[in-house]
């Protein structure tokens, strides 16, 4: 409210007093959206946790069919994309407008690399008849329970991938805006909240990786 009397910034909506109030509001809005996302994924994680605790052997056996090296590489790729995303936010905050676009594009490329590796993994599952469906085959003690593991694997990683694709669409939409010089030191809310969203997607993977790939690795 201190700068309410100052000249109206073109990006300031009429129902806010100041850019600062607007930024705080928009950021809080994104955090509140992430609250709903936590609960959305939370429901799925709860389902996973329940069956993992009921069928530990079958889940461990099924889990050992996942390629740990690809999973680890993907984790690194995604964390790398989080770094480039936070650098894009940093570039916006320090007024380096061209660098925003560069880092956003880098984030996009790393996101695409993640999805590419994911596709290789999915194809691998298909070739080994581990995609639940008519061709599903699993040599192990409890094929029914392993089938549930793979269903949950596809549901969880699939939902995560959908979130990544949505994020990548927005990244692409933000690049021309950055190049036009729309994001300034004073006003860069869209970059900031896109960053929050992207890091959240990273967070989900940080938990998916150990839960899906690493459990029971020592026994399998």
């Amino acid at each position: 409210m201190s700068d309410a009397s100052a000249v109206q910034h073109p990006k300031l909506q009429h129902y806010f007093h100041s850019l600062r109030q607007q930024t705080e509001t928009v950021t809080l809005g994104m955090w509140m959206f992430l609250v709903t996302e936590v609960m959305f994924f939370g429901g799925l994680f709860a389902v996973y946790a329940l069956y993992r605790s009921q069928y530990p052997e079958a889940f461990a056996a099924a889990s050992s069919h996942l390629p740990i090296n690809l999973g680890a590489i993907n984790t690194a790729v995604l964390i790398g994309s989080s770094l480039t995303m936070v650098l894009a936010v940093w570039a916006a905050q320090t007024g380096r407008q061209k660098m925003i676009a560069v880092f956003l594009l880098l984030t996009f490329v790393l996101g695409a690399a993640f999805l590419g590796i994911k596709t290789v993994e999915y194809a691998d599952k298909w070739n080994h008849h581990l995609v639940p469906g008519p061709s599903f085959q699993f040599e192990g003690a409890d094929p029914g329970q392993a089938r549930m593991f793979f269903h949950l694997y596809f549901a969880m990683t699939g939902l995560h991938a959908v979130h990544m694709i949505i994020g990548m669409v927005f990244i692409l939409m933000w690049v021309p805006r950055a190049l036009r010089g729309e994001f300034t030191r004073e006003w860069n809310d869209p970059v900031e909240i896109l960053g929050l969203y992207w890091h959240f997607v990273d967070l989900v993977w940080i938990f998916l990786f150990p839960l899906l790939y690493l459990i029971g690795r020592h026994t399998g």
Binding site: I68, A72, T75, A76, I79, I206, F207, F209, P210, L211, L214, I215, G216, R217, H218, T219
Partner: peptide, 24 residues
């Protein structure tokens, strides 16, 4: 990330889950 992959191959019994989720 490297640590959690390494630990996953060590047999710590029940502690494997705890460590994996702790690192995450």
């Amino acid at each position: 990330t490297a640590a959690t992959v390494f630990v996953a191959f060590q047999d710590l019994g029940m502690m494997n889950n705890v460590v994996a989720l702790g690192i995450a």
